[in-house]
Amino acid sequence: MDLVVPVKRLAEAKTRLRGAAGDDPAAHARLTLALTHDTVAAARAARLVRRLIVVSSDPVVAAELAAVGVEVVPDGPLPGLNAAYAHGAEVLRSRRPDGPVGALQADLPALRPDELDAAIAASAGHARAFCADADGTGTTLLLAAEGVALDPRFGVGSAVGHAASGAVALTGAWPGLRRDVDTPDDLRAAADLGLGEHTRAVTVPCR
């Protein structure tokens, strides 16, 4: 499986999470970047992930991730999260036209590699499949089989949108894969599962 992970410019990302790692904007940027680092590290450690690229035009994101061997490609010509996923999928498919591709959210600091492997394995036999978030309304992972368009529909109510588009909902527990972080409460819930090392290093007690 080849995965694409989009990351907004740090100054614009995770606005509802502001203050969770301190009050100054630099602290918020560090937290946003830490979430990405932990998500990407877990994904790269998954056995069934062949290649991963990050889509971002933020120079700090590009430099930080390149330093640990992650490929970063700039945003495509169209704005928005779904456009970033589609652009990343095009890049991956340009290299392996018939390979399966996946879209992974960048804010999964409690993700475990074995959870991602289990979700990818569970998607076998389906043209497209997705993992809903802990609330059941959003999407943390979308997978498309060989030769199938990714057709991302992330955003508010994306679980319904992906199901309506024909993607199959994956039913495994996978708490770290389902726990995306948009708010301080989400961050506390992720901490209960066990944060990755980068997020642990920049978070202040939030209980």
Rank of each mutant, 00 (worst) to 15 (best):
V5Y: 01
K8E: 13
L10D: 10
R18W: 08
P25T: 04
A26H: 12
H28I: 11
A29P: 05
T32Y: 12
L33R: 02
A34V: 06
T36W: 00
H37W: 11
A45E: 07
L48Y: 03
R51W: 10
S56K: 12
D58K: 09
D58N: 12
D58P: 10
P59G: 13
P59Q: 13
P59M: 13
V60P: 07
V60E: 15
A62I: 02
A63C: 11
A66H: 14
A66V: 07
A67E: 14
P74D: 10
L78Y: 11
G80Y: 11
L81Y: 09
N82V: 02
A86I: 10
G88E: 03
G88F: 09
A89E: 11
V101G: 02
G102M: 05
A106E: 14
D107S: 13
L108W: 08
P109L: 06
P109R: 03
L111R: 05
I120Q: 07
A122F: 08
S123E: 05
R128M: 00
D135G: 15
T139W: 00
A145H: 05
A145I: 02
L150C: 07
D151C: 06
P152T: 07
V156R: 13
S158Y: 00
S158K: 00
G161Y: 01
A164W: 06
T171L: 14
G176C: 03
V181M: 10
D182E: 14
P184K: 09
D186H: 15
A191R: 15
L193Y: 02
G194P: 09
G194Y: 07
R200E: 15
